[in-house]
């Protein structure tokens, strides 16, 4: 294997890995860095289970090469909690029973966080379109949308104080 050596930042920590040039960032995160919170549902960008941020932008890790991560900042669900505290979205997903099987949950959380950072006070429609890249087969999305609304409200209050 003609491996490429990549230095990058994952969830704020400096990380180095070697991978084949054709390997996806999803496979790197899961198999080389043991960040299995990033899920693979399709591998073709159609389900959003592998949602991560790359330099702050929401992307599907399956559609990024590991080699592209050189010098970038990668954010995964494992980095959502800060200082031992769950992110308000994480709390509200539990409180609102917004997960059943939970396989789509990490992707939804990362996508919802990106959505609320861009738009702290989204309408229901904006939430629904903003999360349309994340498939959930269990919930019918009802409680997911409600959890995001609840978290948005809490986060707006937090911002004011």
């Amino acid at each position: 294997m003609n491996g490429v050596t990549v230095s990058t930042t994952v969830n704020g920590d400096a990380v180095q890995f070697v991978c084949p040039p054709s390997e996806s960032l999803l496979d790197v995160l899961r198999n080389r860095l043991n960040l299995t919170g990033v899920k693979e549902g399709c591998g073709t960008g159609d389900c959003g289970a592998c949602s991560i941020t790359l330099d702050g932008r929401l992307v599907c890790a399956c559609l990024v090469l590991g080699a592209e991560a050189e010098g970038r900042e990668v954010g995964t669900v494992e980095g959502m909690s800060e200082n031992g505290e769950l992110h308000p979205l994480q709390v509200q997903f539990i409180e609102n029973a917004a997960l059943q099987c939970g396989i789509c949950t990490p992707g939804f959380l990362v996508a919802a966080k990106a959505l609320l950072e861009r738009n702290p006070n989204p309408t229901e429609e904006e939430i629904r379109y903003g999360l349309a890249g994340n498939l959930c087969r269990c919930t019918g999305y009802d409680k997911i949308v409600r959890a995001v609304q609840a978290a948005a409200k809490i986060m707006r209050k937090g911002r004011k104080s």
């Binding site: 960008g45 959003g48 932008r57 929401l58 559609l63 990024v64 959505l115 903003g130 890249g133």
Partner: peptide, 9 residues
């Protein structure tokens, strides 16, 4: 073209 995730790329 695609979702927000796709839009980012």
């Amino acid at each position: 073209i695609g979702s927000d995730q796709i839009q980012g790329r």
